[in-house]
């Protein structure tokens, strides 16, 4: 297990340590410094790429969750409609099709469209479309599993108490699946943020995302700025994940305690009565 941990995390630790390295050489320790962080703060290429990445990730996560919810609903709520099996396969396909293929085929499609209609230029829109096509598949899977485990009688009860179908959705279903929507959003956000393969096919001149910048810089020769960028990313992600799981854990413990208390109370009542 220790070997496993070393294998998993030592590279990341090395990367972080060397982002504070006061030397141009990536493999030689030359003293502690923050200067690479200063450098990237003024590096417009990195900053623009970062902004674009965020924008794309925000857009594609939101679109993925919206489309994924619709797909998941169709799959869970309607057990038989014409072409259901095909539809299910189509939802899951992006999960198994190699991303190179997805990227390439989307590229060909967009080039074809551009030739026919003069639209779209490769850029933020095409990246967005690419990320969403993969992301919505992931979102659909996450939301679908939540919908499946949700007690169907909750929705029936809502209807029974006077909710029209749309009210059932907004007042009961949505709050019930909110957590899975958030999870799906975070998942697709991260997927989009660090996607290289599909993005490489779909980005155009002047629209490079952060991972592409990192990759191209690393290819030109290792550069401590890359380490610095990566460290920031790692920091943001791990703080996010840590806070998230801590919060969930707290909720869970509190809930369990409250449930146990209610049960004990109930038993006491039963004995007393």
């Amino acid at each position: 297990m220790i070997a496993g941990y070393i294998f998993l995390y030592l590279p990341i630790v090395t990367l972080i340590v060397f982002s504070f390295n006061d030397s141009k050489m990536v493999t030689l320790w030359g003293g502690f410094t923050f200067k690479w962080y200063g450098v990237i703060a003024h590096d417009t290429e990195v900053l623009d790429a970062f902004k674009l990445s965020l924008k794309v990730a925000l857009m594609s996560a939101t679109a993925s969750v919206l489309l994924g919810t619709l797909a998941a609903f169709a799959m869970v709520r309607y057990k038989s409609f014409w072409g259901r099996t095909a539809f299910s396969a189509h939802i899951n396909a992006p999960l198994v099709v190699p991303e190179v293929i997805t990227g390439l085929s989307l590229l060909l499609f967009f080039v074809f469209c551009e030739r026919l209609f003069g639209w779209p230029d490769r850029g933020i829109l095409t990246i967005w479309a690419g990320h969403t096509s993969v992301g919505m598949a992931y979102a659909a899977v996450v939301i679908q599993s939540r919908l499946l485990e949700m007690d169907k009688s909750l929705e029936e009860a809502a209807m029974d108490l006077g909710c029209k179908p749309f009210q059932v959705f907004t007042l009961v279903t949505l709050p019930m699946i909110a957590q899975s929507l958030l999870a799906a959003w975070l998942l697709t956000f991260t997927l989009s943020l660090d996607d290289v393969v599909a993005t490489a096919f779909l980005s155009g001149p002047g629209s490079t995302t952060l991972p592409i910048v990192i990759l191209s810089r690393a290819r030109l020769g290792l550069d401590p700025t890359v380490n610095a960028i990566a460290t920031i990313t790692v920091a943001v992600v791990s703080v996010g994940v840590f806070a998230g799981s801590l919060w969930l854990n707290r909720q869970e413990t509190r809930r369990a305690a409250e449930q146990a208390a209610a049960y004990r109370e109930g038993m006491q009542h039963a004995v007393a009565a």
Partner: peptide, 17 residues
């Protein structure tokens, strides 16, 4: 439809929100 009937049902699972 259920939401137009003057009938209410208590579910086996209670279905409390």
């Amino acid at each position: 439809p259920p939401y137009e009937r003057p009938i209410n049902m208590m579910f086996q699972s209670y279905a409390l929100f």
